[in-house]
């Protein structure tokens, strides 16, 4: 049963991992993007539609990246070049994504696709316990598992990662250093949207194999909250997303084994548990917030 809960947690949390990492990248550059939910939706529909048309979930996943990037690019344009309010713009982008995907998606509700199937990694998947919980997923879920550490490495160990973090702390310094904070923010927000879109793609190509209107049901907003409670740290954000998945998976697995679960717990646990754990983990770490998020937003030089 523990194996089942963990694998369920990973399968359920994977799409949230993508979205949370995308939001981390965006916020580390100094831009809050509440359009993450919208990017997940456009990514999910793009991935599903392209998979229907081409029969290839790989091309579908690429379309998911692109589909998620587009609303984020719009967000970037409005807040960076048009100085629009970040929170209001982000919400508008989410509602735009919801509206557009509901309208364009009606024709795809009754489509059938074959998505990504789990690939057991030879030898490794035969290790007792760890083989089951780590080495028996579909390709996108493996990517999700690697994403947190990869982003940590990128931000901590590469020059571009440093520039990204510096942009979120002080655009002026980056400008003086010879880089365009505006360009960095454009790239960060768009890449963040692309990751959220890949999360949407994971949801439809590996989990549901179906498209319905509003298929993400708020997972993008969960991701945004996770980023804050994870103190903008990529590995912690990934763990938070998996913890969220674990809470959902646990109550489903408990029910499937005949254990009573209260309606309150049923609805609330995933959110409460995740927030409480992350809040405790990030005690006294408010100073980690990128300084750019605290200040009045200045788009920075050109």
């Amino acid at each position: 049963m523990i194996v089942d809960v963990i694998t369920g947690a990973v399968r359920y949390g994977a799409c949230v991992v993508f979205a949370a990492e995308g939001e981390t990248v965006s916020e580390r550059s100094g831009v809050v993007n509440l359009g993450t939910e919208g990017s997940m939706l456009t990514g999910a529909l793009a991935a599903f539609a392209v998979t229907v048309w081409t029969g290839s979930p790989v091309i579908g996943a690429l379309a998911g990246l692109l589909g998620g990037a587009l609303p984020a690019l719009l967000h970037a344009f409005l807040v960076i070049d048009r100085n629009a309010d970040q929170l209001a713009t982000g919400l508008s982008v989410t509602f735009l994504g919801l509206g557009v995907t509901s309208a364009l998606g009606t024709g795809f509700v009754d489509e059938k696709i074959s998505g990504f199937d789990p690939i057991a990694i030879p030898l490794l998947s035969e290790i007792p316990f760890f083989g089951d919980v780590l080495f028996n997923y579909d390709i996108l879920t493996y990517v999700a598992l690697l994403l947190g550490p990869a982003l940590w490495w990128f931000m901590k160990k590469t020059r571009w990662g440093l520039i990204l973090r510096a942009t979120g702390e002080s655009g002026d310094v980056v400008y003086a250093y010879g880089h365009s904070p505006r360009k960095v923010r454009y790239m960060a927000v768009t890449a963040g949207g692309a990751l959220a879109g890949l999360g949407g793609a994971q949801l439809v190509l590996a989990s549901t194999l179906n498209w319905v209107e509003n298929i993400t049901v708020g997972r993008g907003f969960v991701a945004v909250a996770l980023v804050i409670f994870a103190s903008w740290l990529p590995i912690r954000a990934a763990l938070g997303a998996l913890l969220f998945g674990a809470a959902v998976s646990l109550q489903l697995q408990l029910q499937a084994r005949g254990v009573n679960v209260s309606a309150f717990l049923l609805g609330m646990t995933p959110y409460v548990l995740t927030l409480v754990v992350l809040a405790i983990a990030s005690r006294g770490q408010a100073q980690r917030m990128p300084a750019g998020l605290k200040a009045v937003f200045a788009p920075g030089g050109t």
Binding site: D4, G8, R11, C15, S207, T208, R219, S249, Q253, A256
Partner: peptide
């Protein structure tokens, strides 16, 4: 209608 959750419910 939350297909992602339905999939996990079915799996469990």
């Amino acid at each position: 209608c939350d297909p992602g959750k339905q999939a996990e419910a079915a799996n469990s």
